[in-house]
Design a binder for these strands. Structure first.
Length: 856
RNA sequence: GCCCGGGUGGCGAAAUUGGUAGACGCAUGGGACUUAAAAUCCCUGGGCCGCAAGGCCAUGCCGGUUCGAGUCCGGCCCCGGGCACCA
């Protein structure tokens, strides 16, 4: 190992770059000058840049730091560009790990949480991120969570929060209920991916996200261009809008069983239905089985079907199973009697939990009916080119379709469908739905995959739900004036069973706000996704004790100009946030529809091919990193190693390159600082510039032009750094600078170099800026403008191709004309042989770009 | 199965609208400085042939469009991610 090269001892090696010293120094100065604090100021354009707030679970690793570094570069660039920038940070402080840790260590969740917050905050400060710490929030503080309660009460008033007994997802390891969104891989806990979620019936609180299903879907259009396409797509799929119809099939002979309602997107195929199939969990199954001959056998099959554990990967390929229930349903259109089945592929959670099987026009139905020998009549045929055959070709066309392999799922023309025969599918769908509605056995309906958001959690470390239950008045909301409903300070935490609050008498026993009699408090707490659904609004007015925020302040700062976070939150957090925004809009608090105009999802930091995480044990600690190389090197490396949207494989070897580069820059400025400190930077005499000066100024301004665009529009931080490295290399090549380069030009070039580095390595840049003779602090300097005239080359190498293959390069003046270049090419010793004996049939000349001679 | 990404040197990666493929960095090799090493500075750096000049091959594979394709079109292969019987 190269002992002397280790960053810790760099000063011993001769370079004066000592990140430990200068980073602390400038962090202190920034704090003293309140550089990152911003207020509402309508005279300036605002810019709100936000990184997803961390869950304070433990050590901060480079995966987090990458997220914050990207945000910080954006914030600093915007500040240099004259924007009034809000860049806040806070803590997603409620949650299960705190409670579990508290149980394990016999402490209070708050203690564990606050300890972690302190640690993480120290790490963030160590990296010099430009946060306005006055806006810091912690969601576990009553000052914050009282507004969760306040919003809950507003939703309750509007019927957007409601309670119902429902079958819920229960994780036996978390000992709590999970939202649908927290059930992953088709039935596993999102935190314990090896643990199968169980089903229980509990009284639960729900927020009516479905009331906004249409808006959540439609407003995605507003986000196009600003949000990654795939996030929009994931949200769209999650919401899962499906237009179709609900149709009731009467049950023959068992009147009391009532009709079976099915959902279909293809009501036009109803004449081809050969069975009604119920989900194994459908409530009518039991009724239909009563008195049915094969009852015992059927129930055995049912039990087995309900118990069969389904592995995620088998779900789609799983064999379809089912059995005839012994009863018949009546097709309301044809009057035909068709058998009622139970099928394992029918989901209780979607639609009505019952379907009509149309085997000729649905792949799954086809598979099922083939297996059990049910008929497959064709009722839709492809639209033929010949319009005359449309009405006549019924049965023959139908048998044709069947012989060619079976399932036709597209739109076409109805056949064998009574009065609807001959209609195009779209027409038939509309007419049949209208008929069903007129006759009262069905209607067109749009259903969503999206479910209401179950927010009740049987846990301590969350926001108490502000309602009480009175034996006289029933459920009574806690009045606003009594908010916040505080968490009791000394709960009994066991980690098992019901909510810990239920067994904390001083919390649960209260009086009814209506009658004053004894009452019990709701003992469940809110899902922590509630906390993160609106936290970014609170930053705009973090200490308001009269309202969640002042609408005027929010009106200035919102929407968020740039939100940055992991793709892992593409559905849950972002969907809930969008929902909350719409609710707040309808409460009259805000006027915008969407919280964030732009979203950026950065790639993960990996080590050994897997994402850095504490549980995987492959973390590179942020503070270790800062200790060894300094924050600036860590920041630079995470920006340089890969484009921000891509995953980044951490390499201990490569980081040395970033470290060396910063040292190189430092030495360069250190060497020349003394001689340029007193002079005024500038390029006023560029016209009479020496060859060295020309090279330096041109390269500096060309670099600035491209770096500006990389920062502003493309976010190609890695290539921006490469360009700055090239500039640095060029300056080194022009050494000694004090020969042939005037001090003001030297200073100009070194200043540009410093300013371009500033957003990425802010501490070093400040130090260099000071060395160059500035006393005001780099934060007062704006982003420099490049000088177009100085970027211009006067000579360059034009590539010459023959038949599209590169044959040579010619040094010519910029602007040299076609004839001239062709003449030079023909005279060139290397190019000419490729032309001899052939005639030029075509010339492609792109001025200042290339010449291609086509010969034959 | 469906929907997104992505395949470029030993490695991380560049390549604004089709116009010099491999910038920049890591690792490697060489040189300078040094008693020596480290650090630093400079150079080399896809493969094959050639003393060289230069030539041929090369951006997952096959084909197409074009004067010209990493970039556009069609077909395939592989890797990563998301959804997963959604009626």
């Amino acid at each position: 190992m190269a002992e002397q090269n280790t960053p810790g001892s760099a000063t011993a090696a001769g370079s004066g770059y000592d990140p430990q010293k200068i980073e602390v120094k400038w962090q202190k100065r920034w704090a003293e000058a309140r550089v990152f604090e911003s207020e509402v100021d309508p005279s300036k354009p605002k810019y709100y840049v936000l990184e997803m707030l961390p869950y304070p679970s433990g050590t901060l690793h480079m995966g987090h730091m990458r997220n914050y570094t990207i945000g910080d570069v954006v914030a600093r660039v915007k500040r240099m560009r004259g924007f009034n920038v809000m860049h806040p940070m806070g803590w997603d402080a409620f949650g299960l790990p705190a409670e579990n840790a508290a149980i394990k260590n016999n402490t209070h969740p708050r203690e564990w949480t606050n300890k972690n917050i302190a640690e993480i905050q120290r790490g963030l400060r160590r990296f010099g991120f430009s946060y306005d710490w006055r806006r810091e929030i912690s969601t576990c503080e009553p000052e914050y969570y009282r507004w969760n309660q306040w919003f809950f009460l507003r939703m309750l008033e509007r019927g957007l929060a409601y309670r119902k007994k429902s079958r819920v997802n229960w994780c036996p390891k978390c000992c709590t209920v999970l939202a649908n969104e927290q059930v992953v891989n088709g039935g596993f806990c999102w935190r314990h991916e090896d643990t199968r979620v169980e089903s229980r019936e509990i009284e639960q609180w729900f927020l009516k996200t479905t009331a906004y299903a249409d808006q959540l879907l439609d407003d995605l259009k507003e986000l196009e261009g600003g949000w990654p396409e795939r996030v929009i797509l994931m949200q769209r799929n999650w919401i899962g809008k499906s237009q179709g119809a609900k149709v009731k099939f009467a049950v023959a002979d068992v009147a009391e069983a009532g009709p079976i309602e099915v959902f279909t997107t293809r009501i036009d195929t109803i004449y081809g239905a050969t069975a009604v199939i119920l989900a194994p969990g459908h409530p009518l199954v039991a009724k239909l089985l009563e008195g049915s001959p094969g009852r015992a056998e059927a129930e055995a099959k049912l039990t087995k079907m309900r118990q069969t554990s389904v592995k995620t990967e088998d779900l789609a390929t799983m064999e379809k199973e089912g059995f005839f229930i012994g009863r018949y349903a009546v097709n309301p259109f044809s009057g035909e009697k068709i058998p009622i089945w139970v099928g394992n592929f029918v989901l209780m959670e979607y639609g009505t939990g019952a379907i009509m099987a149309v085997p000729a026009h649905d792949e799954r139905d086809f598979e099922f009916c083939t297996k059990y020998g049910l008929p497959k009549p064709v009722v839709v045929v492809p639209q033929t080119q010949d319009p005359c055959s449309k009405t006549e070709g019924g049965p023959s066309a139908a048998s044709k379709t069947m012989s060619t392999g079976g399932v036709f799922t597209e739109f076409g023309v109805s056949v064998n469908s009574g009065p609807y025969s001959g209609m195009e599918s779209a027409t038939a769908i509309a007419k049949m739905a209208a008929f069903a509605e007129q006759k009262g056995f069905g209607r067109a309906e749009t259903i969503f995959r999206l479910k209401d958001w179950g927010i009740s959690r049987q846990r301590y470390w969350g926001t108490p739900i502000p309602v009480v239950y009175c034996s006289k008045d029933g459920m009574v909301p806690v009045p606003d004036k009594d908010l916040p409903v505080l968490l009791p300070p000394n709960p009994k935490l066991t980690g098992m069973g019901e909510s810990p609050l239920a067994s904390t008498p001083e919390f649960v026993n209260t009086t009814c706000p209506k009658c004053g009699g004894p009452a019990k408090r709701e003992a469940d707490t809110m899902d922590t996704f509630v906390d993160s659904s609106w936290y970014f609004y609170r930053y705009a007015d973090a200490h308001n004790d009269k309202a969640p925020y002042d609408s005027a302040k929010v009106a200035y700062w919102f929407p968020i100009d740039q939100y940055i976070g992991g793709i892992t939150h593409a559905i849950l957090h972002l969907l809930y946030s969008r929902f909350w925004c719409k609710v707040m809009r309808d409460l009259g608090l805000i006027t915008h529809n969407e919280p964030a105009a732009r979203l950026f999802t950065q790639g993960m930091v990996q080590k050994g091919g897997v994402a850095m995480s504490k549980s995987k044990g492959n973390v590179v600690g942020a503070e270790d990193m800062a200790e060894k190389y300094g924050a600036d090197t860590g920041r630079l490396y995470t920006l340089f190693a890969a484009p921000p949207e891509k995953d980044l494989e951490w390499s201990e070897e490569s980081i040395e390159g970033s470290w060396r580069f910063l040292n190189r820059v430092y030495r360069l400025v250190e060497r020349h600082a003394g001689s340029v400190r007193g002079v005024k930077s500038g390029n006023a005499n560029a016209i009479s510039a020496s060859p060295k000066e020309k090279i330096l100024l041109r390269r500096a301004h060309q670099t600035l032009r491209r770096v500006t665009s990389d920062f502003e529009t493309r976010w190609h931080f890695n290539s921006a750094i490469a360009l700055i490295m090239e500039l640095t290399n060029e300056i080194y090549l022009q050494e000694p600078l004090d020969q042939g380069v005037r001090p003001e030009v030297r200073k100009e070039v070194l200043e540009l170099l410093t300013l371009m580095l500033a957003p990425m390595t802010p501490h070093l840049a400040e130090e260099l800026w000071e060395m160059l003779g500035h006393t005001g602090g780099l934060w007062t300097a704006g982003w420099p403008a490049f000088d177009e005239a100085l970027t211009r080359e006067d000579e360059f190498e034009i590539p010459v191709q023959v038949n599209g293959r590169l044959r040579g390069k010619l040094k010519v003046a910029v602007g040299t004309g076609e004839e001239e270049v062709v003449k030079l090419a023909q005279a060139d010793a290397v190019i000419a042989p490729h032309l001899t004996g052939k005639s030029i049939v075509k010339r492609i000349f792109v001025p200042n770009k290339l010449l291609n001679l086509v010969v034959a």
